[in-house]
């Protein structure tokens, strides 16, 4: 099996960075959105739910293209980005953004299902014991949502590691800058004699994904132990 070259290591490191950033950046908004979907009772909720879940069913290429339209040089957000001196397309930020949008529904879905399983009487008990709503959120809902949060983060992280379609359109395939593992594999398969390198990266991908699952399982066990003691 051929050894990995520096460019491959870069791709692996970049994949890890992108997935980590995308997951961590999504947590606050994902939590807020799941809380809203689980506990609010306003009309139009199912529409919002549908919009959030859309990237799950749309081809990632479509998501990437829409993001390009929005964040490109003549896109809807272009003036805002210029004002902030931010460049999204063809940068690592683009890769992170693409992963965030595509993985977000997975995070919200897992969190929401978890939150809906919290017995509403626990929330009522907390309120009647003197907790304001934010206090109840921090002392009851957040601790009881840790496991679903972990599950959602795992799913999202894994999804980000494998993100291809939206990334290649929004961030391009620039080695060392936006080329993550899947994009590198794509490059190798298009290069004569690159098959073995592609296979090596596939193996790396499998190992990484397995690691994520194992770590997540271990963490979930600890959270559960913390809960039941």
């Amino acid at each position: 099996m051929p050894n990995l070259n520096p460019q491959d290591y870069q791709a692996i490191w970049l994949s890890f960075q992108v997935a980590t950033c995308a997951t961590l950046l999504s947590v606050p908004l994902g939590f807020a959105m799941a809380y809203f979907l689980a506990f609010s009772r306003i009309p139009g909720k199912s529409l919002i739910d549908g919009l959030i879940n859309l990237p799950l069913v749309l081809p990632p290429v479509v998501v990437g293209y829409l993001l390009l339209l929005g964040f490109g040089d003549r896109g809807f957000f272009a003036p805002l980005l210029r004002a902030l001196d931010l460049r999204i397309i063809f940068t690592m930020k683009g890769a992170v953004l693409a992963s965030m949008v595509v993985g977000f529904p997975l995070l919200v879905r897992a969190l929401r299902i978890g939150m809906e399983e919290i017995d509403p009487r626990l929330i009522l008990a907390s309120r009647s014991l003197g907790a304001r709503w934010w206090d109840c959120l921090l002392s009851v809902i957040v601790p009881l949502s840790l496991r679903p949060l972990l599950a959602g983060m795992t799913l999202m992280f894994a999804r980000s590691l494998g993100e291809f379609g939206a990334t290649i359109i929004l961030a391009g395939n620039i080695p060392g800058l936006t080329q993550t593992i899947p994009l590198a594999i794509y490059d190798y398969t298009n290069t004569p004699g690159g098959d073995s390198m592609a296979l090596t990266l596939c193996l790396v991908s499998i190992v990484l994904s397995l690691l994520v699952l194992l770590v997540s399982d271990r963490l979930a066990l600890r959270v559960r132990k913390g809960v039941t003691r």
């Binding site: 009487r121 626990l122 907390s126 809960v227 039941t228």
Partner: peptide, 8 residues
């Protein structure tokens, strides 16, 4: 009716 203690 059911104690509804905080499980965590």
């Amino acid at each position: 009716q059911h104690a509804h203690l905080f499980p965590h």
